[in-house]
Design a protein around this nucleic acid. Sequence first.
DNA 1: CTGTGTGAACCCCTTCACAGCG
DNA 2: CGCTGTGAAGGGGTTCACACAG
Lengths: 222, 222
Amino acid sequence: MKKRRSRRQSGPQVSELTTNRLSIYLRCLDTLQAEGVQTISSQGLAARFHLNAAQIRKDLAWFGEFGVRGVGYSVETLAAHLRSILGLGAPIRMAVVGAGLLGQALADYPGFPRDGFEPVALFDRSPAKVGGQTRGGVPIFHIRRLKGIVRRQRIRIAMVAVPAEAAQQVVNQAAAAGVEAILNFAPAALVAPPGVKLRNVDLTVSLEGLAYHLKRHDANQK
Amino acid sequence: MKKRRSRRQSGPQVSELTTNRLSIYLRCLDTLQAEGVQTISSQGLAARFHLNAAQIRKDLAWFGEFGVRGVGYSVETLAAHLRSILGLGAPIRMAVVGAGLLGQALADYPGFPRDGFEPVALFDRSPAKVGGQTRGGVPIFHIRRLKGIVRRQRIRIAMVAVPAEAAQQVVNQAAAAGVEAILNFAPAALVAPPGVKLRNVDLTVSLEGLAYHLKRHDANQK
DNA sequence: CTGTGTGAACCCCTTCACAGCG
DNA sequence: CGCTGTGAAGGGGTTCACACAG
């Protein structure tokens, strides 16, 4: 009756597109729960949040059977399942590397703690910054201390907000320090050692993608 | 001999994945040019930057024939073509809405001017912030003045860095003000009117996607 | 002989459609 | 009877492989 695809520890090998949508579904469910909605069908979810009902069901099917036929899904229990699938049981501690404006903004971003991600340390190589802390109270350490603090504080994710030239070295250091995943904001094509998951948030690529869609009003069109 | 797909003004209807890669290619070419490389083959590009040679050629084929058979591509002219395709002829002026830490970091991000994107105004509704400016010198205006300043300053892209609850309204205001594209950082599913291109940078989704790949070490595994 | 441009094959993701359960 | 879960169909994007241009 149940297709157990889970290999005990890590879940099935689903695509990044699917995990992204699971995260979206979770957010939608949280919204519904705040509104007091107790049950919702895939149709209802799709209509309310501009999603595709079949896709919701397919995405969930990778992990089990969470719905009740003829009824739909319990908002509360489906949200709990998604949190479990995504590994959001306990808060996840993070480090931010690079104490520039972006790094400090990330360290103090109010959305992260709300979603169970806690930036607990900021790293930089500038002596002027080391020893201080962000407005939100995140302490700034010298990058040299990365490994020790990652170990001691059980930091699992690093966010990289340093100039492109330094980014690869920071990824290497973070991986060596035992970080399991990295979110990179530097505009550079980086590689992470096997076992370390790397994702990029490339603002230049995003903006140039938008630029492609701007109306062209060049003076001299050939 | 030439397949001209271009409909004079806006280019062909290629996927977002393709435009993203064009942006990457451009960055790679800039790197090569800085190194003094004059010519490169798709193979060479692929090997150097972990790309796929066939995909590079396919992506470029949407827009023309830029290579020389038996030789490869001129680094300089291919870069120029890509810049033209992406619409990066002249600097593109941007507004940032939301003068929190993230908004200010975006307004002062040094990578943007380097790539031809110029944040020229920051908007907020907090009287405490309005009238001031960022460390980098970007002036902060009341959101009420969005339309006038977008018009006068010929702002074409808006970056949205406000809380999720306010994001949809800001998108509506920006669209009404004449902005052509929006890069949204708020964790919310927004809609933009037709003709306005919307892209999301969702940090929570990115982090939860990483969380999925973390090793599970729960105390009690069922 | 080298490397582009491109049809064809392949693969993955999305969408459809419906059997069957509650 | 409604809605899930899912096989099958469909559509896109990626990769292959090669004709052919230089």
